[in-house]
Design a protein around this nucleic acid. Structure first.
Length: 822
RNA sequence: GGCCGAGUGGUGAAAUUGGCAUACACGCAACACUUAAAAUGUUGUGGGCGCAAGCUCGUGCGGGUUCAAGUCCCGCCUCGGCCACCA
């Protein structure tokens, strides 16, 4: 037992804990209150075939430390595990190999489970769920039906993002810089009948709810940006020689006299029927343009529509242009162009030689020039005056803004308006490996809900995975026959499946009642555990998951199932673990660290401690192959101190706390060491609660550095206990086989801090002369200021700087510092 | 372009929120043990000057507040993340 070789006992304990059911069946725990419960949650993991990554180990270990710590101080901890198991990678793999996703997914889950158990995560495995199980997706479908009943799930024809490679529609969120998030192919636009969830119903509450949650500021800001609330005005422009009006949305209605033309999006209803050939051509080219071409090549393009509008205030005719820098989906899909104050309009006007009217002037200048509205006027409206604006000339923009709005309102051509960037959530996917949308169509093509007694609406297995542009479900014989049998001749199923974000946006509710076959979760269970007390999830791809989860939570609350407004009370993000070269790990860069290799060489305790020691949990941190050694050495020293010594026991076989650990001799009254231990117990506990795991480990190391031969057995047990959340295997091994522990170290209580041992009677404080440290003295904490000063003046170094005890001023911060000004 | 972060030794990072800058590690150097290496242990390790006690400079840059600034205020520079033709 002298050599530290962790692998045997680590594997033994990881299996033993699960076999003993040490952390299980927490979801039906009794006597749970808002005060004593801790619902700890790690982001729903997608079980990829490549297995656990070192980037998973960091948040998992952090949560596991919290779980073990909170259990030790008497909290009811709920720490469940599940799998976001539907999704494209498994299906793509099936297309390549023919192996059904259900098989590869099961294998991947097995691998992940084994690896997570191997690093000792104290999950409640009894509550394990997976979104691809019929017992789970039955309730995903049930949720769809509840939304459908409330008209919050609806079908409409819409231009959608289409990935030609994945052969599927993508949500806006899955399009990254014009490319498919999954396969990097250029995304094109296509018009299709799709199912949507009406998340826009909750827009304002999705904004205001952010005030009540403890989330990183940046995350809240990202949510706000995505929702994109913008206050402005809608102004109607009459088309010449026509009854038709074009409404435009603007946030700068006060520049309206500078509107020298209008621009509409290529998809705008006004122009789709145009007979002009150059318009037709432009529409065609705009449509075929990929998102990427649009973004990379920001050169303005456009075409004159042949139509004119009447400016409501000047009553002059202005031309209407078509250009793809105006987005159909935002605002009204049409703008009034003010080239004198808007960068984009200015570029467009220059390129197509359109007139520019300057309507703003800096109040100390007489120049007529371009002034950016968003950058300058909006910031300091009082510094700019209106010009070329009829009756409003000479007013500053603060007054002008009000007065012009009033005029537009009086004329009934403009009104205040709010627009949002957030649009309804497109959930249809023309893919196999997802939850089927529970809708059937009668022979006339009308949609009907699948009856609840037919849930789970099973995903058929007789399919070919090769994508054809339509859902693979269409070719399932069983699926089509099932519908005719259940609903009648000529009835057909909805062939699309749901976006996997639907599955993963309510899983935290299912966790509270994971085996329920009658309900998606009992209200009292959700009431018991919700909201999640602490959620740890990566900073990438969270905007949508969080918006969707919040949307479902608010919907289910309105339906009476749930009593919380927000699902996640506190949230933090783990940083990224970078490669040793300080770059993001990737196979192509060859800088990937495999956790299995680290475990084989050093053991899981070392891996856990190293990842916790690397730095602050939310910072990106580079891996260092050498630095792992530091944690390994520390654990070896703990091992040789505790593990290899024979511990004397008293006659009853229980441990004699008055025995010295290393020598077996009577305990020396080592006051300093006991004091340090108490300080360490307090610091480790405080640091864990503050998520400062790196400094908690540093404190543990500092204590060990001070340990000599005189650590009492009682103190040894306390030290081992506060180390146990970080290194659960080795501490368990020593506890059970060397210290005679009958029960697991992970079920005993956190040591009490002896507050009296923390109170220092004497302290050493630095003495400064003019702010520079020149010496130090030992004092009693409650010595009066005068006494401290007198003592300081006796120090020889101090006397070198202060002659005849004369100084201008002395500042004494009790127990901390003394500063003389000379 | 918008919104968030971050800049401290050779490296990862600490600093009780205004009170001894560089804790804890890694690395490096010397020594001990060894035939030797590994492992382990001991000591040292921000720059400059000095044999030394010590002095002095020092937290991206420039200013300011304060007895006291890595920390607060003003103005810059650099790097990273997310979003982005959103009217």
């Amino acid at each position: 037992m002298s050599k530290y070789f962790p692998i045997d006992f680590e594997e033994k304990w990881s299996k033993q804990w699960v076999a003993d059911g040490l952390f299980q069946h927490t979801f039906d725990a009794k006597d749970v209150t808002d005060e004593n419960r801790k619902y700890l949650l790690y982001a729903f993991a997608y079980p990829s075939g490549s297995g656990l990554h070192v980037g998973h180990v960091e948040p998992l270990t952090a949560l596991d430390i919290l779980a073990r710590y909170y259990r030790s101080i008497g909290k009811k901890v709920f720490f469940p595990v599940g799998w976001d198991a539907f999704g494209l990678p498994a299906e793509n793999y099936a297309i390549k190999t023919g192996i059904p996703p259900v098989k590869t997914t099961k294998d991947a889950i097995d691998t992940f489970s084994r690896q997570i158990k191997r690093i000792g995560v104290s999950y409640d495995w009894g509550a394990e769920i997976a979104t691809c199980h019929p017992g789970y997706y039955q309730w995903t479908q049930w949720l769809f039906l509840q939304l459908y009943k409330k008209k919050l799930a609806y079908k409409k024809s819409a231009p959608v993002n289409w990935c030609p490679s994945c052969q599927t529609v993508l949500a806006n969120e899955q399009v990254v810089e014009g490319k498919c998030e999954r396969c990097d192919t250029d995304v094109i636009q296509k018009k299709m009948e799709q199912w949507f969830f009406k998340i826009t119903q909750y827009m304002d509450e999705l904004i205001s709810g952010l005030d009540s949650v403890d989330w990183p500021k940046a995350t809240k800001q990202q949510q706000l940006n995505w929702i994109g609330k913008s206050e402005g005005a809608e102004i109607k422009f009459q088309i010449s020689n026509s009854e038709t009006q074009i409404p435009v949305f603007t946030t700068a209605h006060d520049t309206i006299y500078g509107a020298t033309f209008l621009v509409v999006a290529p998809e705008h209803s006004l122009v789709s029927a145009s007979k002009l050939t150059d318009v037709q051509e432009y529409l065609k080219s705009a449509q075929s343009k990929t998102e990427e071409e649009r973004l990379v090549n920001k050169e303005k393009t456009g075409v004159f529509s042949g139509l004119y509008a009447i400016h409501p205030l000047t009553e002059r005719e202005i031309p209407i242009w078509i250009a793809d820098y105006v987005l159909a989906q935002y605002g009204t899909g049409a703008i009034m162009a003010v080239p004198g104050n808007d960068e984009r309009d200015f570029q467009f006007a220059q390129k197509f030689d359109l007139p520019i009217t300057y309507v703003a002037q800096k109040n100390d200048s007489s120049n007529q020039e371009f002034i950016s509205y968003s950058k300058e006027i909006k910031e300091n409206p009082k510094q700019f005056l209106l010009i070329n604006s009829g009756e409003f000339d000479g007013q500053d923009f603060e007054a002008g803004r009000e007065n012009i709005m009033k005029k537009l309102d009086d004329m009934s051509v403009g009104k205040r308006e709010i627009t949002y960037k957030l649009r309804d959530w497109l959930i249809s996917r023309q893919r196999y490996w997802g939850a089927p949308i529970p809708i059937v169509y009668d022979p006339e093509g009308n949609a009907h809900m699948v009856k609840e007694e037919h849930l789970p609406w099973m995903l058929p297995t007789d399919v070919d995975f090769k994508p054809t542009g339509e859902s693979p479900l269409k070719l399932s014989k069983e699926f089509n026959e099932r519908v005719e049998k259940l609903y009648g001749k000529g009835w057909t199923p909805e062939y699309d499946t749901m976006d996997t974000f639907v599955d993963s946006s309510w899983y935290y509710l299912r966790f509270t009642d994971p085996r329920n076959t009658d309900e998606f979760a009992r209200t009292e269970h959700m009431k018991k555990w919700m909201p999640v007390d602490f959620y740890m999830i990566g900073p990438e791809h969270i905007v949508l998951h969080l918006l969707y989860s919040r949307f479902f939570t608010k919907f289910l609350r309105d339906e009476g199932y749930l009593s919380v407004d927000e699902p996640f009370a506190k949230m933090r993000h783990q940083g990224m673990i970078l490669g040793p070269d300080h770059r993001k790990m990737s196979k192509s860069k060859g800088n990937v660290i495999n956790p299995d290799d680290v475990i084989t060489e050093y053991g899981a305790d070392t891996l856990r401690m190293y990842e916790m020691f690397m730095g602050p949990i939310d910072a990106d941190k580079p891996w260092s192959v050498e630095s792992v050694q530091g944690q390994y050495r520390f654990l070896k020293r703990v091992w040789s101190l505790f593990g290899s010594r024979v511990i004397p026991t008293s006659v009853e076989g229980s441990l004699d706390p008055s025995t010295s650990l290393r020598t077996g001799s009577a305990r020396d009254d080592n006051e300093a060491l006991t004091q340090l231990l108490n300080k360490t117990i307090k610091k480790v506990g405080d640091d864990i609660e503050a998520l400062k795991f790196n400094t908690a480990i540093a404190a543990l190391m500092e204590f060990l550095n001070e340990v000599d031969d005189n650590l009492s057995l009682d103190d040894a047990k306390k030290f081992l206990k506060i180390l146990s959340p970080f290194a659960p295997f080795m501490t368990e091994e020593i506890w059970r086989s060397q210290l005679g522990g009958k029960e697991s170290i992970h079920t005993v209580s956190w040591p009490m801090v002896d507050e009296s041992a923390l109170q220092k009677s004497t302290v050493t404080i630095p003495i400064q002369i003019n702010g520079k440290v020149r010496g130090s003295i030992n004092i009693s904490v409650d010595d009066p200021q005068e006494q401290v000063i007198q003592k300081a003046l006796t120090v020889q170094k101090v006397q070198q700087y202060i002659t005849d005890n004369s100084y201008k001023k002395a500042i004494y911060v009790p127990g901390k510092i003394l500063n003389f000004i000379v």
